[in-house]
């Protein structure tokens, strides 16, 4: 069963094979770079580029559609609200108190496109990096191992909790618990038996888990943990790392020169 918590797409594309740390650096630098600029066409170009990258990783189209659907409110509200509340420059059309200005509209669209691009950059990482590598990369860049383990176990147990919750709801409904009638507070109160049973079961689960971890000798003193699959930089990773840094530096230079900071024009006006 697929759950919403695991979006990884198992493929063997060039992006999948990259070191998770390089991809993480890409996420950080690319997102940072996008915040430096506010040109609509720059953002659209970035959006097209990141979509092309995701496509080159053989991520199926329905995943892209899924992200677009999730971003729909952002794409609707930001341009509309921006246009309504921050009119600037020449007016194209007037409707009562609301004036449509191309400048405000392009600013709104630019902000939405920037958020879209950042979202897709993040999902590029999640689509192409399995949970093991995600956790491992975070531990490698300094997260304590125990925190990494907690993160891994949380990811692992989210679907289990979802299943537990569903079962408990069913079990209490089977005892004639009515969750649908009455006002807000009554319905909230009706959820109490569910909450309590879930918490008790979750505590039991945590208890078992703690014992199982102890049975795998976790916490052995004086031993440095090793890894069967450790992250290893390959030549590709080094090349990309350099390319990323150079690219980012180049963009910073453009920003200093003031390019792509106007919503519609490349050069500052």
């Amino acid at each position: 069963m697929r759950t919403a918590f695991d979006v990884y797409v198992e493929r063997s594309s060039w992006i999948h094979q990259l070191d998770a740390r390089v991809k993480l650096l890409f996420v950080l630098l690319a997102s940072l770079a996008l915040t430096l600029f506010s040109n609509l066409f720059f953002m659209l170009a970035a959006l097209v580029l990141v979509q092309a990258l995701i496509a080159s990783a053989h991520v199926p189209r329905d995943r892209l559609v899924w992200v677009w659907k999730a971003m729909l409110p952002v794409n609707l509200f930001i341009p509309v609200l921006w246009t309504v509340f921050y009119p600037e420059g020449p007016v194209l059309y007037e409707l009562g108190p609301v004036s449509l200005t191309p400048l405000a509209l392009s600013r709104g669209l630019g902000v939405a496109a920037r958020l879209d691009a950042i979202a897709f950059i993040g999902f590029l990482w999640l689509f192409t990096t399995d949970q093991r590598s995600i956790v491992r990369s975070l531990v490698k860049i300094g997260l304590p191992f125990e925190w990494g383990l907690v993160l891994a176990i949380s990811l692992r147990y989210l679907p289990a909790f979802q299943g537990l919750y569903t079962l408990v709801v069913e079990a209490q409904q089977a005892r004639a618990l009515d969750l649908t009638s009455g006002g807000f507070f009554r319905r909230l109160r009706a959820r109490l038996p569910i909450l309590v049973a879930v918490i008790i079961s979750a505590l039991r689960m945590a208890d078992k888990l703690a014992r199982a971890l102890e049975c795998r000798a976790l916490g052995l003193e004086g031993v440095q943990r090793t890894y069967l699959h450790d992250l290893q930089f390959t030549r590709q990773d080094y090349v990309l790392l350099v390319a990323l840094l150079v690219g980012f530096f180049g963009l910073v230079v453009l920003r200093v020169l003031g390019l792509f900071t106007h919503p519609l024009y490349v050069f500052p006006v």
């Binding site: 891994a152 052995l220 943990r225 890894y227």
Partner: peptide, 19 residues
Amino acid sequence: QFFTMTVEDEVAFGPETLG
């Protein structure tokens, strides 16, 4: 008793702890 995402990682977990 499982903490990881693949069978292989699960079995490797103990030996990894042993270093």
